[in-house]
Amino acid sequence: MPFNKLHVPKTLSSDICRSINDQLHASLVEMCGVNPDDYFCLICRYEPEDMIFHPTFLGERVPRATIVIEIALLGGRSDNQKEKLYKDVRHRLREIGFDPANSIMFLVENGPADWSFSEAGSVKTVLGL
């Protein structure tokens, strides 16, 4: 159950944001075994000057063009799966014309009791886990 947040400069088009999330979701399905129907994303837009990123920390980037990809998902993926995900997402970004050097990604893992989609309660309760 991933929930993606894309933190992007306001200047990035909705079409590119949608494409980035489509590629991110495809990578999550392929690299991490995510259910294809678990498709959720929130795009958070900021003025470029409100996005403060070091231009050379662990790689070169253009701070005003950098995006942050935040992925909240159920825990349990191996470090190897996570590394493959990062690599695959950056490959996909390049294929759609977005410079992967201008991306920062991080995962926030949690459990089934940490999600709720209805009045029935947590995913843990609804699925009887």
Results as ranks from 00 to 15, higher is better:
103 S>R: 12
127 L>E: 02
122 S>Q: 01
75 G>T: 02
50 D>L: 12
115 W>T: 00
37 D>H: 04
20 I>T: 14
90 R>C: 14
51 M>I: 15
109 E>S: 04
70 E>Y: 15
129 L>R: 00
111 G>N: 06
129 L>M: 05
10 K>E: 13
37 D>A: 06
67 I>E: 07
4 N>A: 10
99 D>V: 07
106 F>R: 06
102 N>V: 11
102 N>F: 12
60 E>D: 09
72 A>T: 14
17 C>G: 09
121 G>R: 05
115 W>C: 04
46 Y>V: 08
25 H>S: 07
70 E>C: 09
118 S>D: 09
122 S>K: 02
8 V>I: 13
85 L>S: 02
67 I>W: 10
72 A>D: 06
54 H>S: 14
123 V>D: 01
10 K>G: 12
26 A>N: 13
86 Y>M: 06
59 G>Q: 05
36 P>G: 04
113 A>F: 03
98 F>Q: 14
23 Q>Y: 05
119 E>M: 08
8 V>S: 10
45 R>Y: 10
12 L>C: 14
83 E>A: 10
76 G>R: 05
13 S>P: 11
9 P>E: 09
21 N>Q: 08
10 K>P: 08
17 C>D: 08
42 L>W: 15
95 E>H: 05
12 L>S: 13
81 Q>S: 04
96 I>G: 08
44 C>L: 15
60 E>C: 05
79 D>Y: 06
104 I>K: 12
32 C>W: 04
61 R>W: 11
93 L>N: 11
60 E>S: 13
16 I>P: 04
1 M>K: 00
99 D>P: 09
83 E>Y: 07
44 C>M: 13
129 L>F: 03
105 M>H: 12
126 V>D: 01
25 H>V: 03
98 F>K: 15
63 P>Q: 11
80 N>W: 06
52 I>Q: 12
87 K>A: 13
94 R>V: 06
38 D>C: 05
18 R>D: 13
65 A>C: 15
9 P>G: 15
25 H>K: 08
26 A>I: 00
66 T>R: 10
55 P>R: 08
121 G>T: 00
4 N>S: 11
105 M>V: 11
117 F>T: 03
20 I>H: 10
83 E>C: 05
124 K>H: 04
113 A>N: 08
51 M>C: 13
106 F>E: 04
76 G>H: 03
46 Y>G: 07
51 M>L: 13
100 P>H: 08
57 F>K: 10
79 D>I: 08
5 K>H: 15
83 E>T: 06
62 V>Q: 14
70 E>R: 11
102 N>P: 10
77 R>A: 03
46 Y>L: 11
122 S>D: 03
83 E>V: 06
122 S>G: 00
43 I>T: 13
27 S>V: 11
21 N>P: 04
59 G>R: 02
58 L>T: 10
106 F>S: 01
32 C>R: 02
4 N>M: 11
3 F>L: 06
